[in-house]
């Protein structure tokens, strides 16, 4: 088997003095969708941010596409082909839809699908209708679509997708799941954090379960659905 696209080993992260992540290890293979699961506060968001170089202090062995990421700043990591979609959306509210996409634009990258605004508007028809609209005047679901589309403009080969279904209406959640499957079909690899088992099972090949900053379980999505014990211990109320 070839080297995975992303290999994370011994990931530690801190916020101030609080030690949030303690030795997370995971891999994402080429063309694979991996779900990072766990309850609120388990460390899912921090894991994605730490991979992206967005936490103040981290320590890890991080390899992506044969390159070492552990000492790079966020913009260098992004330029290597890692796309980050934050959970709190963080669209540029004063910018129009088209301008938001422009901020994300990077040159085409060999080995990753190339995106244009037109291609993205075909994927997210809602956005096409509001290309001149400012972010302040968009619904939560539209903002989530825009966040994803904006990151895709960087032509990433790996997508870090933080809680894509959170706080969205059921219909939008379904559209989001469709979009993730489309991206996988285009050849993208995805690492997504998710609380919703049903969303994760609809899109992911494998799952990693974390709790209080540690990796607790890893396996295929099908195994997770069968394993009542793991679900009860780390996911259910």
């Amino acid at each position: 088997m070839s080297e995975p696209l992303l290999t994370v080993d011994g990931l530690q992260a801190w916020y101030g003095r609080a030690h949030i992540l303690d030795g997370i290890a995971l891999t994402v293979g080429r063309g694979e969708v991996v779900a990072l699961m766990g309850r609120n506060g388990a460390g899912k968001t921090t894991t994605l941010k730490a991979i992206m170089g967005l936490v103040e202090r981290r320590a890890a062995s991080l390899r992506f596409d044969g390159r070492d990421l552990s000492a790079l700043p966020a913009h260098r990591i992004a330029r290597l082909g890692v796309g980050y979609v934050p959970e709190d959306r963080r669209i540029f509210a004063d910018l129009t839809v088209e301008e938001n996409l422009e901020v994300g634009r990077q040159p085409p990258r060999p080995g990753a699908p190339t995106w244009t605004p037109e291609k993205l508007f075909a994927l997210f028809p809602n956005l096409a209708e509001m290309r001149g609209r400012r972010g302040t005047r968009m619904s939560g679901g539209e903002q989530q679509m825009l966040t994803l589309a904006r990151t895709l403009m960087g032509n990433p080969s790996l997508l870090l997708l933080d809680e894509p279904s959170e706080g969205l209406a059921p219909l939008i959640v379904k559209q989001m799941a469709d979009a993730v499957r489309r991206l996988k079909a285009e050849g993208l690899s995805v690492l997504l954090s998710e609380q919703s088992l049903s969303f994760a099972s609809a899109v992911a090949d494998r799952a990693c379960v974390i709790e209080t900053g540690r990796l607790r379980w890893t396996g295929t999505m099908a195994e997770l659905l069968k394993d009542d014990g793991v679900r009860a211990a780390y996911l259910a109320v």
Partner: peptide, 24 residues
């Protein structure tokens, strides 16, 4: 201009702008 758009984006959210590959 693209440069101006990037500046406006960075004015709103520096971290997110750099996460999109812009060298702050």
């Amino acid at each position: 201009t693209r440069w101006g758009t990037l500046v406006r984006a960075a004015t709103q959210d520096r971290e997110m702008t750099s996460a999109l590959g812009v060298d702050p």
